[in-house]
Amino acid sequence: MPSVLFYIFAAVMLGFGLLVVVLRNPVSNALALAVSFLGLAALFVSLNAFFIGIIQILVYAGAVMVLFLFIVMLLDIKAEQRRKLNMPAVAGGVLLVVAFSIQLISVLANFEPGKRRINEVPLDLPAAAAARVASGAPAASINATLNAGSLPDVNLVGETLFTKYNFHLQVIGVLLLVATVGVIVISRREDKNAPAAES
């Protein structure tokens, strides 16, 4: 990706991210966040992470943001009143930003592979396929796609998830079941004529 596009999308992401904090109307906040996610997705695509880019749009910009908007509109949240700046909160925020920046800079300064540009290290797909065959990876169709010179990233994610991390997937399955049951327990509709509970 040309660096011009990188700067455009990075500016979109950061600018709309800033608007999320600055705007006072909750609906505008949610929409600004969605646009910010779109910029982030474009950056993922520029790193050859096509699958994550698409998922970013489908799940975050699509599903999660629609959910946010639903809640904002259902609860009929009004635009926030302009408040006085809460100095301790601002100071804490600045402190956190500084702390994160220091961490980021120190990591980037120490991480040697990060100093090379992505154009300088092209993906060697046939070599990856050969390594897979050597390690006895089962899915032959993935190897074929790699040898043909295209990156089957969805297939690779799926393969890793359902073979190496199968155990985790099962545990997450139980977690989702528990969460579903829990939502029903906490939000179950009551009989209309139920007596009021004392608290």
Binding site: V171, L175, A179
Partner: peptide, 10 residues
């Protein structure tokens, strides 16, 4: 750990 924690929220 998340399975335990989330179930405890409920």
């Amino acid at each position: 750990l998340e399975l335990v924690t989330i179930a405890f929220y409920v």
